[in-house]
Simulated scan of single mutants.
Amino acid sequence: MYSLLNDHPSMRVGLAALINHQSKIQVVAEAANGEEAIEVYSKTKPDVVLMDLRMPGIGGVEAILAIRKVDPDVKVIVLSTYDLDEDIHLAIRSGAASYLLKDTPIEDIANAITSAYAGNVSLPKSVTKRLAESLQREQLTEREKEVLEALIMGRSNKEIASRLSISDETAKSHLKTLFQKLNVCDRTEAAIAAVRHGIVHLD
């Protein structure tokens, strides 16, 4: 049994029809928002929940956390339009067993449902890579973040060294480590990555 939670009726109905044609999988309930998701889960207790993240009212992550308070062992698969690092990270941290994009082939969605039912965490390689990169970014030291902020402000190595009261060589060393952790090749890519991934916020 499986429950589908999505705020777009046509998407929900179409996906439910496709899923119901898969062997050994049956849609037992649908919901259009987070509030309904929590209520539907309490009533039907499906084996697997397919959850959208961005819904009106209570969002997907909040709904997952609320449902897991009722049943810590619930199997949830997030199906989203967005492949943003923050969304992926929040979904997995909330306890999702997988994170799939809405253009994922139906056979792969069915396989993810079967895998989640069996108690497995199955993430596409692209998502696994993004999580690994996100973890690496989280490991930036406070000093490295200060260097990154100065870099985004357009400071030269010498200016960064002076601003932080460190030597030019130390500033260069911090930049080299930053490039490795951010998986970038130069200062411009580092600045773009920092803003895109929310490491540094521009006013």
Rank of each mutant, 00 (worst) to 15 (best):
M1C: 07
S3E: 06
L5Y: 10
N6E: 14
N6M: 08
D7F: 13
P9W: 07
S10G: 05
M11V: 12
R12W: 09
A16N: 03
L18C: 05
S23R: 13
Q26F: 02
V27K: 07
V28H: 01
E30P: 00
E30F: 04
A32V: 05
E36C: 07
S42G: 09
D47Y: 06
V48T: 06
D52Q: 11
L53E: 00
P56F: 12
G59L: 00
G60H: 06
I64Y: 00
A66L: 05
A66M: 06
R68N: 03
D71A: 12
V74Q: 15
D87C: 05
I92A: 07
L100K: 12
L101I: 11
D103L: 09
I106D: 09
I109P: 04
I109S: 07
A110E: 02
N111Q: 13
I113P: 01
I113L: 14
A116K: 03
N120S: 13
N120E: 10
S122Y: 06
L123P: 02
L123N: 02
P124K: 11
S126T: 09
V127Q: 03
T128K: 15
K129N: 06
A132E: 10
Q136M: 15
R137T: 03
E144C: 09
K145F: 02
V147L: 01
L148Y: 08
E149Y: 00
A150K: 09
A150P: 00
M153F: 13
M153G: 10
S156Q: 11
K158R: 15
A161H: 03
S162R: 09
R163A: 10
S165P: 03
I166R: 01
H174G: 00
K181I: 07
L182T: 01
V184A: 08
V184F: 06
D186E: 04
A190S: 09
A190R: 05
I192A: 13
H201D: 04
L202I: 10
D203I: 11
